[in-house]
Computed example of a mutant assay.
Amino acid sequence: MLNNIYLALIHYPVLGRHGNIVSSAVTNLDVHDISRTCRTYNLKGYFVVSNLPAQREIVDNVLNYWLEEFGKEYNPSRSEALTVVKRASYIEDVLEDIEEIEGQKPDLVFTSAKRGRDRLTYGAMRNIIAGSKKPHLLLFGTSWGLPEEIEKMCNYSLEPLRANSDFNHLSVRAAVAIVLDRLIREDTIDVRRD
């Protein structure tokens, strides 16, 4: 079932420039653009995860403006996209929320721009998700990516996008869109009008 997918954008714990664990800053663009992608691909939820109260407040301000205030009337499509967004302090909070909704914990799917062992292709991961009744939570990191401890928590790890490229530094917004398209791809029929 490709309609039982959640996504979390992790701001803590993530890797800093020197490989240390840090908290990264929430960006307005990530909240907006990733929510639009998640809504387009019918994800059940998009969690923005930050352990810092000031960063969670940024998410709250964006959501309040577009869901409750002027933004709701100004741009209803943007408002609808943001209905999938939830904020959380820690990954454990996300798991609890999904378990409360679904009645079971999700399988965790690790993503990274770096190569690693036992990484699944997008086709293989798509088949796993499509053949499962369990919810799946895709984890995306900010800053320099997710630490190894997070990967160890996960049931699956996806291969990186453009792993063989000499330059592999997509924005997380672009990476989310590409990964979701590869996993939930839709075959289209070319219909020509006479």
Rank of each mutant, 00 (worst) to 15 (best):
K133A: 15
A177F: 00
D166P: 11
P160A: 00
G103H: 04
N28I: 14
S77H: 15
N42D: 10
L146P: 01
E159F: 01
T83A: 11
M1F: 13
I98W: 08
N20H: 13
L29K: 07
N3L: 14
S50P: 03
D97G: 09
L120P: 04
F47P: 01
R126V: 08
L137V: 02
P106E: 04
S165M: 10
C154D: 02
D97A: 15
T83N: 09
Y74F: 15
E102D: 09
E80V: 15
P106H: 05
M125F: 04
S89G: 14
S143P: 00
I98H: 01
S23K: 06
E92T: 08
G45M: 09
A8F: 00
H136A: 07
N164W: 10
R56L: 13
I178M: 05
I58H: 03
V109P: 06
S79Q: 08
L63A: 07
R173H: 06
V49M: 04
A88P: 02
G19L: 10
P13F: 08
L170E: 05
I98E: 02
I58W: 01
S89W: 07
N127K: 15
G145H: 04
D187G: 14
D194S: 15
I10Y: 03
K152W: 11
E148Y: 06
L63P: 02
R119Q: 14
I58P: 06
L7T: 00
G103K: 08
V48E: 02
N155L: 13
L7P: 02
K133S: 15
V191Q: 09
F167M: 12
C154W: 04
R17Y: 13
R192C: 13
E73F: 12
L108V: 06
E99P: 05
S112R: 01
N4D: 09
H32D: 04
N75V: 06
E57S: 13
L161T: 05
G145Q: 04
V59F: 09
R87C: 10
E100N: 15
N3R: 12
D97E: 15
W144Q: 06
L95Y: 03
A175P: 01
A8H: 02
S165D: 12
R39M: 07
A175E: 03
Y122N: 03
R117H: 12
K86M: 12
